[in-house]
């Protein structure tokens, strides 16, 4: 058993934690399983004035996909509410799109099977 779907749950869990950190009160989640990949979409508002928290999202999700890191550490994603594991989310996904507007952030992640 490789916990393939549980890993997708963990990615979403981690992102929800992040949205809470930036003060989101309205979060939409859409998860689609396609033939060869999962598409994860999270959209939420944010209230934080701390721009560095938003910049960190981009920086962390930019991390290359690294299966060797995922295999060892994937269980940590979504586990802590005092710290985020967004670099791990970056390592667990193949592509990422981020759209940031004045009061809304949309994150679309692609994870190939």
């Amino acid at each position: 058993m490789k916990h393939i779907k549980k890993r997708v749950c963990k990615i979403i869990d981690e992102l929800i934690t992040y949205f809470f950190v930036i003060g989101a009160t309205n979060i939409d989640i859409n998860l689609q399983e396609k033939e060869d990949h999962y598409k994860i979409l999270l959209r939420g508002n944010y209230t934080t004035k701390d721009k560095s928290k938003i910049e960190k999202l981009v920086k962390y999700l930019k991390c290359d996909k690294q299966e060797e890191m995922e295999e060892y550490y994937w269980e940590l994603a979504g586990e802590s509410d005092v710290d985020t594991e967004l670099t791990l989310v970056g390592m667990m996904t193949d592509n990422a799109e981020i759209n940031i507007s004045e009061d809304m952030i949309e994150v679309v992640l692609y994870r190939y099977k």
């Binding site: 981009v58 930019k62 996909k65 193949d94 990422a96 799109e97 759209n99 940031i100």
Partner: peptide, 12 residues
């Protein structure tokens, strides 16, 4: 904004 994640020649 799409994030570039592939291992480019420079990164190699």
């Amino acid at each position: 904004m799409e994030l570039q994640k592939s291992l480019s020649l420079k990164r190699k």
